[in-house]
């Protein structure tokens, strides 16, 4: 018979999670070998701003075609991933939480692609 202690899974998880956030508190960020004098959140903010500018430039300067649309979509995905990883702490949180985004997104996209694939029927 298993000996059952009073702890629950949550207590164990909480224990595990305890010592994972450490980089967040530092005032410096190491990016590609160079040290930047700002917390990681600010560096990410900079990247988000730069990507947004990049998107704006593409959108304003070039006509919409397969390539530019693709670039815009990729840029937005990178931005979203940055926010999720750093601001929402998924980087050092439980990978299970990633499933909570990815699975519904996958299911939502199945639905979305389906809607895309079906020509407007005109019924």
């Amino acid at each position: 018979m298993t000996d059952m202690s009073t702890t629950t899974q949550a207590e164990e998880l909480a224990q595990e999670a305890h010592d994972s956030h450490s980089a967040d508190h530092s005032d410096k960020t190491v990016l590609f070998g160079t040290t930047i004098n700002a917390p990681v959140y600010t560096v990410v903010f900079g990247a988000l701003g730069a990507l947004t500018l990049f998107e704006l430039l593409i959108a304003e300067l070039f006509p919409r075609n397969f390539l530019t649309t693709g670039l815009l979509v990729i840029a937005s995905i990178i931005k979203a991933v940055l926010v999720v990883l750093f601001y929402m702490h998924l980087k050092d949180d439980n990978p299970l939480y990633a499933l909570a985004l990815v699975v519904p997104l996958g299911i939502g996209l199945i639905a979305a692609f389906f809607l895309l694939a079906v020509p407007v029927t005109g019924y």
Binding site: A100, P104, A112
Partner: peptide, 15 residues
């Protein structure tokens, strides 16, 4: 988990 369900709603609306 709550965000998971939000993902679904927004995906439908955006789609």
């Amino acid at each position: 988990l709550y965000l998971a369900s939000e993902v679904v709603i927004f995906t439908v609306l955006i789609a």
